[in-house]
Design a protein around this nucleic acid. Structure first.
Length: 491
RNA sequence: CGGGGCGUAGCGUAGCCCGGUUAUCGCGCCUGGUUUGGGACCAGGAGGUCGCAAGUUCGAAUCUUGCCGCCCCGACCA
């Protein structure tokens, strides 16, 4: 891990500029705050999406799709929800354009004003619950376990590539249950699914917890979250799962008859992760040379680069390259044989390093003569020349090693950046110097939380699940506290 | 919405203060050749409403005014 670039926040912007935009992940579009995701970046998102989708289905969920446009009146039905999102909604007011009668360009046709404005979804709870009302009558209709892959729009004042774009891609699960216990279990189950994915596929360690009341999702009773740590010591919320109680059922009048034929409001959850995960991946693993992708979600796991010497035995090198490519493909490894003659080997080495391809294999005349091959791993930048024997097994083992070692490295970093603080000066000093999570006592009030946020820009990231009880005094107010919580500066 | 900064080729820029030949340089692009074990080299070439508009002037990338756009910082936030 390189010191200069990982130690300061502003360098992340540099990573994005050099690696994400120019390096092939994204580009700014004309629409402020939105991003164009280039093919390589999208392939990465697709890989993540596919794994998550599989996990959702394995836990009994189905996909559906709901409209992009939400009638304004829907949004106002749940009080906390509208308060949370009203300030950041894009609104459709007209449905037609026409030529400007005064010449020049094209204008919005004032005749085509919508009777009721449409909101571009910032999240879909309202339109989905409006639909669930017609789908749910009996306990036999429950649980209803649905997920949607979609884009949403939140008109944030300030955007940050991948972490907070105006439009972003995500999935949102929305479930309905007969009992509170079942709904709580569902929201916890989905948190476990997210944790499993982020840790085991993205190789990013996370802390599971619940949000404090003021950090809770608008309309939720409880918000479970996974919090990750970036290389600059700032925290990033990587995913959330909400227990919504009966709030949306009441707002949209979704009732069911239970076994005793009693009418009861259903219990709800919602949960989501977004393209923000791509940002998490970049900021958790990259180094000065570019991205470092964990093998399990890398769009290309192995790249094979032939090294030609003029036309000498070129056909032989190509044949060998194609042969080992086919062999790896047969094992289910995502491999690219780059025999494009427009770029020289050195150019390709740098290019695939920048793109974070976990393993690079180089094949030259020297190798043909000695029956060897050169294997280089991206994460440690180690390079070795090995005999061709058991090549496929070596690659497979290497991919597993890289996956594990990337996780271990990130975990060691994360654990080294969880620090206890027992007084205010130390708390402030840690935030300014070391960063990371700071485990400290809190009196449980929103006022204290707010004051700390104002003074030090640190927020309570979460109250960890299974948090041990511990008597102490609040870091800020000095009032009694019964447990430590995790503070951090966050994205 | 506040506070800063910036608009010159596909990208990054010099020139502007102090107006004056054909608007600078690098990357990229095109052609030809030599190359290929860590981002090649040589030669030649194409590419510009200097953000837009008005004004001052013999003359404006440069000065003035208005407008537009973008970036950074803050409030907001997955």
């Amino acid at each position: 891990m390189s010191k200069e670039i990982t130690s300061r926040e502003e360098n992340y912007a540099q990573w994005y500029n050099d690696l994400v935009i120019k390096g092939g992940l994204a580009d700014y579009s004309a629409v402020k705050g939105c991003m164009v995701i280039k093919p390589y970046g999208f392939a990465l998102w697709e890989k993540m999406r596919d794994e998550l989708d599989r996990m959702f289905k394995e836990t009994g969920h189905e996909n559906a799709y709901f409209p992009l446009f939400i009638p304004k009146s829907f949004l106002s039905k749940e009080a906390a929800h509208v308060e949370g999102f009203a300030k950041e909604c894009a609104v459709v007011t007209h449905y037609r354009l026409k030529n400007d009668p005064n010449g020049g360009g094209i204008i919005v046709d004032p005749e085509a004003k919508l009777e009721e404005e449409l909101i571009v979804r910032p999240t879909s709870e309202t339109i989905i619950w409006n639909t669930y009302k017609t789908w749910i009558q009996s306990y036999r209709d429950l649980p209803l376990l649905i997920n949607q892959w979609a884009n949403v729009v939140r008109w944030e004042m300030r955007t940050r590539l991948f972490l907070r774009t105006t439009e972003f891609l995500w999935q949102e699960g929305h479930t309905a249950h007969a009992t509170a216990e079942e709904a709580i279990e569902e929201s916890q189950l989905m948190l476990r699914v997210y944790a499993d994915f982020v840790e085991n596929y993205m190789a990013v360690p996370i802390i599971r917890g619940v949000k404090t009341a003021s950090e809770r999702f608008a309309g939720a009773v409880e918000t479970y979250c996974i919090e990750a740590m970036m290389q600059d010591g700032k925290a990033l919320q990587a995913g959330t799962s909400h227990f919504l109680g009966q709030n949306f059922a009441r707002a949209f009048d979704v009732k069911f008859s239970d076994r005793q034929n009693k009418l009861e409001y259903v219990w709800a959850t919602s949960w989501g992760v977004s393209t923000r995960l791509v940002g998490a991946l970049v900021m958790a693993h990259s180094d000065d040379e570019g991205l470092i992708l964990p093998p399990r979600i890398a769009p290309i796991q192995v790249v094979i680069v032939p090294i030609y010497k003029g036309d000498e035995r070129k056909e032989l090198l190509d044949a060998k390259g194609i042969e080992i490519t086919a062999g790896l493909k047969k094992m289910g490894i995502r491999v690219k044989f780059d025999n494009n003659d427009n770029n020289r080997p050195g150019w390709k080495f740098a290019e695939y390093e920048k793109k974070g391809v976990p393993v690079r294999v180089a094949l030259g005349l020297r190798d043909l003569d000695n029956n060897t091959i050169e294997i280089a791993r991206r994460d440690t930048r180690e390079k070795m020349s090995v005999p061709m024997e058991n090549f496929n097994d070596k690659i497979e083992k290497l991919l597993t090693d890289i996956q594990e070692s990337m996780y271990r490295k990130a975990l060691a970093f994360r654990d080294a950046h969880i620090t206890r603080a027992d007084n205010w000066d130390e708390f402030a000093r840690l935030l300014d110097t070391k960063g990371g999570f700071i485990s400290a006592h809190w009196d449980g009030t929103a006022e204290t939380e707010e004051s700390i946020k104002e003074q030090l820009k640190a927020t309570i990231r979460c109250i960890p699940l299974n948090n041990p009880a511990e008597e102490g005094l609040c870091i800020f107010s000095g009032k009694p506290s019964h447990q430590r919580v995790l503070f951090a500066r966050a994205y």
